[in-house]
Design a protein around this nucleic acid. Sequence first.
DNA 1: CAGTGGTCTAGACCACAGT
DNA 2: CTGTGGTCTAGACCACTGC
Lengths: 246, 246
Amino acid sequence: MSGTKPAEPGKRSLHLRILDDLEGNILSGRWPPGHRIPFEHELTEAYGCSRMTVNKALTELVRRGLIERRRKSGSFVSRPQSQSAVMEIRDIKAEVQSLGALYRYRRISRAERAAGPAERKRFDLAAGARWVDVVAVHLAGPRPFCLEERLISIDAVPEARDEGFEQGAPGPWLIAHLPWSAAEHRISAVAADARVATLLGIEPNAACLVIERRTWSGGATVTHVRLTYPAGSHELVAEFAPSQHR
Amino acid sequence: MSGTKPAEPGKRSLHLRILDDLEGNILSGRWPPGHRIPFEHELTEAYGCSRMTVNKALTELVRRGLIERRRKSGSFVSRPQSQSAVMEIRDIKAEVQSLGALYRYRRISRAERAAGPAERKRFDLAAGARWVDVVAVHLAGPRPFCLEERLISIDAVPEARDEGFEQGAPGPWLIAHLPWSAAEHRISAVAADARVATLLGIEPNAACLVIERRTWSGGATVTHVRLTYPAGSHELVAEFAPSQHR
DNA sequence: CAGTGGTCTAGACCACAGT
DNA sequence: CTGTGGTCTAGACCACTGC
């Protein structure tokens, strides 16, 4: 009377198929943040399986941070957490303030322009793609702390057209306007060129830490940011403990 | 007839307790890599619960990479994978070779010495703790690629006493001799001082990327390494996609 | 109070790898 | 063939929370 559904040959197990389906709906944006996903008993019916099976998929989505669950209310698509939970790249404002310094933000320039051919290739953009191109400096007290060079795809985030980014940095603004996305970080050291040295108030050729983050969703780049920190002002820390059940 | 064990108040759920117990045995080293952990039916008996419950804990251990399971044979403690699966910090040799260059390794010095007071404090070491202190250069073709400054705790890895590290780098050697451990990375940019500049064949004050990795197990630091790359020779890449079921 | 998720059971069939 | 893990079922009781 029990022990059925032995997983047909060549097929992934049922709970993985359910997981893929749900995750697909979330990552594609079909189910935006805040959306209530079907109840367990509804999924049970839809897939013709027992509750434990759908529960396994839903539990995994919780672990991945894609949904949050509340008794009596249901399960809801989470809002993407700031940047990346893996490598703690926090909000620059919070970082400066945690150093005990006064945080200030100064926009240097903002332009709207077409993506060049090299950019289109590097960032998987369609022909005719356009950027909002922002340059800004984050300050800790009197000293420049970090130079931000930001590109935002107008196709992906059309609201960026109406934003001057004069008062607030693009990063926090984007978090509220971005769908679920993947990110890639590149971290390197460079010698400051003349322009960067001027903007950061350091000597030309001084050592800098550069963090580039490319964020994309559904194949195309959504935003790209290059953060340049004078040597010594910033350290990236990542801890990899084998376990940390919150 | 069913529906028992409602999780006593104040207690974590049973599968989490089982998970903690097993994980404790692995991370403490009581169950070394390769050790066969109890079969599901044995755990079922030991905890007086159903198979699904122990399976939930074991499945989570697989997900965390702490065990591997083979039908008919059982479940075994995994060997710690090279460095960190999260941030791809690969073997330096492999990295150089993937650039198409000839890899060479040159040990500069090796010493055995007591840890200083500052080190003991920073690294949670007992009084009288001793290091094996190795300095070496990794080369890509004719050019220095990376400077390695390595400390190995003799208490944690006594076999290091018998190793000269003249032929092979400490990193690969350690992977075979280390128990499960946690790691913390610090990434920063620095200007090369005179000594580093000489060893790497670059100008003094040239920009360098520095990766420091501290590895510890059971409270005390096992090894600490500082890798210094000339700017441009090395980039750290980390991708954070929301999903990647292997 | 009622509906949802959180957890658990006591089985079951199957695939797979050692013997 | 046998023993292990992989998966699934059809229930169950409980805790929490919104109404």
